[in-house]
């Protein structure tokens, strides 16, 4: 509960932060809200020698419209997202993260860069087919959500790179839902399901996306369910049948509260509920 010794800098510019990270090398870490990194340091599971706090980097806490979609600065806090109903499922999921204290500090950038499959926003970004922009000393690149999450606590963001903003495509015409199953309101998800549904004019399913929180070592898409539903009717029965396939191919890690089987069961139930809500059935 007491961290190992570390140095701390809070540069006033993005370049300054990139420099500091580069100088610190392997042992340097960016610090955003600190609500994932600091607990790890306090438990001494992580002991970076240098923290590069991004708090003084200008322009990273923002929510802007862009091409009908959104560009959200990396330091935008969960509480900021929660307050913006127009962000749809992003706001809905953000409001379900932990408790208000955590939401007041935790950031979208930190949540995505940390790569914890139990975090809520990664599955949401995956379902939205969004992307993140990262800056390194070599330049700027964009990483699609589907390429971002590589393994447990491992993302495609390289050491020394900083996630600057998150891109969310236009959402018009999509129904959405985020179903999170927890023991207590403030808990991490045992399983979370993000569902997006777009109806065709004839009421059938024009497109559908389903992504899971905490069903594997990364957030996952439920491709079998999506395929079963895409192009077909969106009635309760079809949704129910499609949801039955939700857990196919998943290997969720068992934990204190849930065996793998129980998580798969929850995934099916929550997928059905999320799809029904998203489809408005």
């Amino acid at each position: 509960m007491i961290t190992a010794e570390f140095d701390y800098v809070a540069p006033g510019s993005l370049d300054g932060a990139l420099h500091a990270l580069a100088d610190g090398g392997e042992d340097a870490k960016a610090l955003a809200g600190g609500h994932s990194l600091l607990p790890l340091m306090k438990l001494r599971f992580a002991a970076p020698a240098l923290l590069v706090d991004l708090r003084n980097v200008p322009g990273l806490r923002s929510i802007e419209q862009e091409n009908g979609g959104w560009r959200i600065g990396a330091l935008t806090r969960h509480a900021d997202l929660q307050a913006r109903e127009d962000l749809g499922v992003v706001a809905q999921a953000a409001a379900l993260i932990a408790d208000q204290q955590v939401r007041n500090r935790g950031t979208i950038g930190g949540s995505l860069a940390h790569g914890d499959p139990a975090s809520d926003l990664p599955a949401v970004l995956l379902a939205l087919e969004g992307a993140v922009t990262v800056r390194g000393r070599a330049g700027t690149r964009e990483i699609a959500a589907s390429d971002l999450f590589e393994d447990y606590l491992t993302t495609a963001i390289a050491a020394g790179e900083i996630l600057t903003d998150v891109r969310i495509p236009a959402l018009a015409g999509w129904g959405h839902a985020y179903e999170k199953f927890t023991r207590r309101a403030e808990d991490w998800a045992m399983v979370g399901v993000c569902a997006l549904v777009r109806r065709a004019d004839d009421g059938t399913c024009a497109d559908v996306r389903v992504a899971f929180t905490n069903m594997g070592s990364t957030p996952l898409r439920a491709t079998a369910t999506e395929q079963a539903l895409r192009g077909g009717p969106l009635d309760a029965e079809s949704i129910g049948r499609a949801a039955e396939q939700a857990a196919e191919g998943t290997e969720p890690p068992a934990d204190l509260n849930a065996t793998a089987d129980y998580k798969r069961h929850l995934a099916r139930v929550l997928t059905r509920r999320a799809l029904q809500q998203a489809a408005g059935t």
Binding site: D99, R184, A185, E186, D187
Partner: peptide, 8 residues
Amino acid sequence: YAVPTAAE
């Protein structure tokens, strides 16, 4: 160790 909160 899940102590209940006001929400529960």
